[in-house]
Nucleic acid binder design. Structure first.
Length: 243
DNA sequence: TCATTAACTGAGG
DNA sequence: CCTCAGTTAATGA
């Protein structure tokens, strides 16, 4: 996906609720971006780092995570093309968690100063980034409930369901299937279970005819069962026109 | 390297 | 007694 397409995806995602003027969009499109390629499982911004730029995902999947003393990693959020996972670093100068790639990625770096200037020049853009950050925190609330309270199969289904809704926004859902190119180790780290158990849960969902996960793609086998299991209420994503 | 599966174990309801 | 989930280990793609 070329980087002007991804800027369009970024704008589409940001605009999904309130509108931006043509000038606002043009300014976002004109932001200078430094493109870099990263292999899978590579840190992009370290915990404790003082960042001077924000990271726009152009291609690939990233995650935000924290690692405890024993070395175990908890994935806190998943990120897809068109998202800026470390937007908060614009105002919170020292990173309190890590941003890393899950798959190989093409990332675009946007200078903080350029973003801050854009904020002052275009209040509507500032508002929409502010709103995006609030949605980000709503997603964290949902993530906590998911990992803390749901049984493992529902936990996985819920993450898949949210991912599908977010991929839909950038036009990346194809019929009953969508990308989820995570290893089972990474899925385990996201759900708070071991990779072996992740494998068991994936198999269970397949055997029950709910969803299939094969070679990084999810295929929904039974929408009704999927919906019931995931216990998904997408209001927290704040994407419907009435919200 | 990653995915798969079995066998065993223990916690907890 | 049953379900869930971690550990270990063997094996396959």
């Amino acid at each position: 996906m070329p980087s002007d397409t991804i800027r369009a995806a970024l704008v589409r995602r940001l605009e999904s609720s309130s509108g931006l003027s043509e000038e606002d969009v043009a300014e976002i499109q004109a932001l200078p971006i430094a493109v870099k390629h990263y292999p899978a499982e590579t840190p992009v911004v370290h915990d404790g780092e003082r960042a001077s730029e924000c990271c726009l995902i152009i291609e690939g999947f990233c995650a935000r995570s924290k690692t405890i003393a024993s070395g175990k990693r908890q994935i806190l959020s998943l990120h897809i093309p068109g998202e800026i996972p470390d937007l908060m670093s614009l105002f919170l100068h020292v990173m309190d968690h890590e941003l890393s790639t899950l798959t190989s990625c093409k990332l675009g770096f946007i200078n903080h100063d350029a973003l801050r200037k854009l904020h002052r020049r275009r209040p509507a853009v500032a508002e929409i980034f502010w709103r995006d950050t609030l949605i980000d925190s709503a997603m964290f609330r949902e993530w906590i409930v998911n990992v803390g309270q749901r049984p493992a199969p529902a936990r996985l289904a819920h993450v898949m369901m949210e991912l599908r809704e977010r991929l839909r926004l950038i036009g990346r859902v194809e019929g009953a299937s969508f990308e989820m190119p995570l290893t089972q180790e990474q899925i385990g780290e996201a759900l708070g279970i071991t990779a072996v158990h992740a494998n068991r849960v994936i198999r269970q969902l397949r055997e029950e005819g709910i969803v299939e996960l094969h070679r990084g793609r999810v295929t929904v086998l039974d929408e009704r069962k999927f919906l019931d299991l995931a216990d998904f209420d997408g209001r927290y994503l704040h994407q419907s026109p009435t919200s």
